[in-house]
Amino acid sequence: MTRSSDTQQIDQQNDLLAALLAYDRWSFLAWQDIKTKYRRSKIGPFWITLSMAIFCVTLGSVYSQLFKADISELLPFLSIGFVAWSFIAGSLGEMPNLFIDNALYIKEMRINLLIIHLRALARGLIILGHNLLIVLGVYVYFSIWPGWFGLLVLPGFILVLLNLASIGIALSVIGVRFRDLSQITQNLLQVGFFITPIFWFPRLLPEGSWVVALNPLAHFVDLVRSPLLGHSPQLASWVGATVTLFASAILAAVLYRAKSGRIAFWV
């Protein structure tokens, strides 16, 4: 009955593997979080889906007039892009305060910090799952079928997920020590929403503009949105996201190794 023994040597190197293997724990806790959060509402997490759908339809129809764009092109672009953006921004936004929100646990029990991350990421995925209904609605209404290019969403999404995980680890470790990182992140994400092509087309930018090229958020959105619209993401998005992943993974590993032992003192 007892688990095959735990030598409780504190060993960060194994935290990642141990966290991944504890999938039954964080997936259950993530489901539980969603269940309890929306228990007292009839349609539960679909509230988010509903408000997002209203947002997309309103913004889509207004901006298609503003930009004189075809609504059948802008609305699918905007809706799918916004669903992807919400997942990305939602995941990143909660990271700086992640350990602070879990301070009770961290201070009172030995807990693998990466399990807290996976729990948060899984929560975001569940919400994303609900929001896929919007994508489905767009497909049906505009009779879009992404075809074979649609399969590219898998590697693209995995790349985005890995990016979010490693940026998230870096943000959460720094966020415990420097409490204003949460505000800074929120601020950047707010700006990011406007400079990322979500409700405007990247082709509107002049040739060689750096606004999209240097914006990792734009690459992340493109990697998810383009396949779902039936075309291949930009090569720059693959390259940009891969470079970001390497940089953030190294940063996350260095920070986690150096500082994960201090987090219980800092929260």
Partner: peptide, 30 residues
Amino acid sequence: GIYQPTAGLVRIQGRIVSTLNISLGMEPEA
């Protein structure tokens, strides 16, 4: 295993259960 020591060695064999704060982690809505 909550706090890491600044110096010295801690070696523990066996499954640890701590009851430092038993009311921990009650989800009021659950």
